[in-house]
Write a protein that binds this DNA or RNA. Structure first.
Length: 692
DNA sequence: CTAGGGTTAG
């Protein structure tokens, strides 16, 4: 064999840094160091086994630079995700400055378009696309095509992606898949599914594992369990059930469709679980309120030697928040700091949220203040957290600071600030925020509209809520639900019912689980027992909806308020789903009102078994004993609270004086103090909200 | 020499 051929064959055999270095020195010795073909082979080897700098050196030493040589270096940088460098290199390649302009080929364009995608260089990518008009051969290359489609879809330009796709007479499965996942990633889930069925039914193209991943993701986002299960069946028939990414996507589907038991079964069957598998299952538990299982799994994962990544800790922190488990949350915080995960905004934000939900706002603020870059999600976690901790008066100030630091709110953050303000109940602030919503063009968003309705309702201004509601012509189900709830919290159950039936009769919007929460609780607040029970039956029989534990707790509450404690107990005994704490809580509260210590103790026993660290429930129980004069039992409970070191949220009261809100820790003196201020200032409204 | 995909925070 000739020397050069031998070296080429040696390239193929290289599988380590050592063998690469050996080969390199051999090439130098035998005088082939300027051989273009050999160097093109050597560059990727160097980049993988040695360093990208060494690969660059090889390139720099070449007297002549062919398009192949450029491509190998470009690909090396792209493999190392050095996108900026890739882009700069490409510009050097095609620039005429030193008279060494090299024309890019289809390989070059696929790489560079990928760099544009990652760097979100929309304008530059479009220029490249324009360049292709004159180069049909490159343009119709399938690899360039998929890179272009991916570029447009990741820049959020699906119409352009579709234009590229349509230029291909015979798109292959990758091109079809790029479109399906493009629609999926841009939130057009139905379109993704429609595109998939066009591909399979009309074109007869067999989807591969990647296509199915995108399809399953679309099902998960649409919370479409039925279709998802069909796809799962298809996956098994095609023999893809060991494809990890695909199974992980299916696991996520079951997580998002509240099919915890199915998810558990699938999880146990998965061989070679990776960090995504574990994270998905942890997230599944957190998402479905099974925080204890989530944290158990998190520890099991670590014990089994699977290293959690930033996403995993976010899922675990969510579980801590759900479980109100401050200790575990702090432990994970330590782990996060050790690994340096807290540099990621999502992790720090999850920490803020966790501390807030565990009622430790100081620790949350501490995390927030240490964050180097704060995005809108972090700000909103902070301001919602304050509201959650009884300091809603701080939220609006934080919102202002956020705006002045140049962060643009999105629809979700508007919903959150409106919700935080509704905790406060200041009418004037509601009007201001309403103005902001209108000026910023958020008023066509159904969720924002619903939040406004809720805000006005909670500020005591049903008239304004109705105005917002009636002002929206195309009423979404969330708007109906919000308005029904609005009447409900004012005790105007009859009007809630009227509105509910108006919706059923005249609107295209169909009541969903949330609507039934609103109408049932409206009935409960107004004591409309028979009407409420009728609605509950309607939900099951006419709408085929499965009542969640929230619906059950309202029905228990409804029965409890009207004194039917035994019937409430009966309902709980016949529940087809696990009885969650708040259902027992509703029963306990009813027992307190109606002095039913016997059932009350049953409720309390179950309740404290499920949530042993919730101070509120102990207080409810102790109040029940107090009403009944069972001071011994009461003392026991109080001691228990002390022993466990349970935290009760600090009650705060607020006064608005000349547009500024002042807060006080609630005590007996406060009421007279507020009254004094009110008297002193006469025209000012005084709001006192004492919390348990 | 090359492509499309899975878990996360308000």
């Amino acid at each position: 064999m000739k020397g050069r051929e031998l070296l080429i064959n040696l390239c193929k055999a290289c599988d380590s840094g050592k063998s690469t270095a050996k080969l390199h020195s051999q090439i130098l010795k035998t005088g082939f160091s300027h051989d273009g073909f050999l160097t093109t082979k050597l560059i990727p080897l160097c980049a993988t086994f040695s360093s990208i700098e060494d690969a660059q050196k090889l390139f720099d030493e070449m007297p002549q630079r062919t398009v192949y040589l450029w491509n190998s270096l470009l690909r090396a940088y792209s493999k190392h995700k050095r996108w900026k460098k890739t882009w700069v290199l490409f510009k050097n390649m095609v620039s005429d400055e030193k008279g060494e302009k090299t024309l890019p080929d289809n390989y070059t364009l696929a790489i560079v378009l990928k760099a544009c995608t990652e760097l979100q260089l929309l304008k530059q990518g479009k220029i490249l696309h324009g360049y292709l008009w004159k180069h049909e051969k490159i343009r119709l290359d399938l690899f360039v095509g998929s890179a272009l489609i991916d570029f447009y879809s990741k820049c959020g330009e699906m119409s352009d992606a579709s234009k590229v796709f349509n230029k291909f007479e015979k798109p292959d499965v990758v091109l079809w898949t790029s479109m399906v996942s493009g629609y999926e990633q841009n939130g057009y889930f139905e379109k993704a599914i429609a595109f998939f069925s066009r591909m399979v039914v009309e074109e007869g193209i067999a989807p591969d594992r990647v296509t199915l991943v995108s399809l399953v993701s679309a099902c998960a986002k649409l919370v479409n369990l039925k279709l998802g299960r069909t796809v799962h069946g298809f996956v098994i028939r095609r023999g893809f059930e060991n494809e990890l990414s695909l199974v992980n996507a299916l696991l996520n589907l079951y997580a998002k469709t509240d099919s915890v038991t199915v998810a558990e079964k699938l999880f146990k069957m998965i061989e070679g679980k990776d960090v995504v598998t574990w994270s998905s299952m942890i997230s599944c538990y957190s998402h479905n309120g099974a925080a204890v299982e989530a944290l158990k799994l998190f520890n099991e994962m670590i014990n089994k030697g699977c290293l959690p990544n930033a996403v995993t800790v976010v899922c675990a922190l969510q579980a801590c928040a759900v479980a109100c488990d401050l200790d575990e949350g702090r432990r994970i915080h330590e782990l996060v700091s050790e690994r340096g995960f807290d540099l990621q905004i999502s992790v720090s934000t999850a920490l803020i949220d966790m501390y807030m939900k565990c009622l430790s706002p100081d620790e949350a603020v501490n995390v927030f203040s240490k964050m180097p870059g704060k995005d809108v999600v972090a700000w909103v976690a902070l301001l919602s957290g304050y509201a959650l901790n009884g300091m809603a008066y701080k939220s609006i100030g934080i919102f202002r600071v956020m705006l002045s630091s140049g962060i643009q709110p999105d629809a979700v953050s508007m919903v959150k600030i409106l919700a935080s303000s509704s905790e406060l109940g200041f009418f004037r602030q509601a009007v201001c925020l309403h103005g902001y919503v209108t000026r910023s063009g958020f008023d066509n968003n159904a969720f924002v509209g619903a939040s406004l309705i809720e805000l006005y309702s909670k500020c005591g201004s049903l008239d304004y809520a109705i105005k917002v509601f009636e002002g929206i012509i195309d009423k979404d189900v969330v708007l109906w639900s919000a308005m029904i709830a609005g009447f409900g919290i004012h005790g105007r159950g009859e009007e809630s019912l009227k509105l509910f039936y108006r919706m059923v009769k005249s609107s295209k919007a169909k009541p969903n689980n949330v609507t039934f929460v609103s109408i049932l609780s409206a009935c409960s607040h107004a004591g409309l027992l028979s009407e409420g029970i009728e609605i509950f039956h309607m939900m099951v029989n006419d709408y085929g909806l499965d009542p969640g534990s929230q619906h059950y707790s309202i029905v228990v509450d409804l029965l409890g308020r009207t004194g039917e404690v035994d019937k409430a107990m009966d309902i709980i005994n016949r529940m087809p789903i696990p009885v969650e704490p708040h259902v027992w809580g509703a029963l306990l509260a009813a027992c307190r009102i109606h002095h039913n210590v016997e059932i009350g103790e049953v409720a309390a026993k179950n309740l404290l078994g499920l949530e042993p660290n919730h101070a509120g429930y102990y207080i409810l129980l102790s109040n029940m004993y107090a009403v009944d004069g069972k001071w011994g039992n009461l003392e026991q409970i109080r001691t228990l609270i002390k022993e466990k070191g349970l935290k009760k949220m600090i009650g705060q009261s607020m006064v608005e004086i000349r547009n500024e809100i002042h807060s006080f820790v609630a005590d007996d003196k406060l009421h007279s103090e507020c009254e004094n201020i009110y008297e002193l200032l006469g025209q000012l409204e005084v709001i006192i909200r004492l919390q348990l």
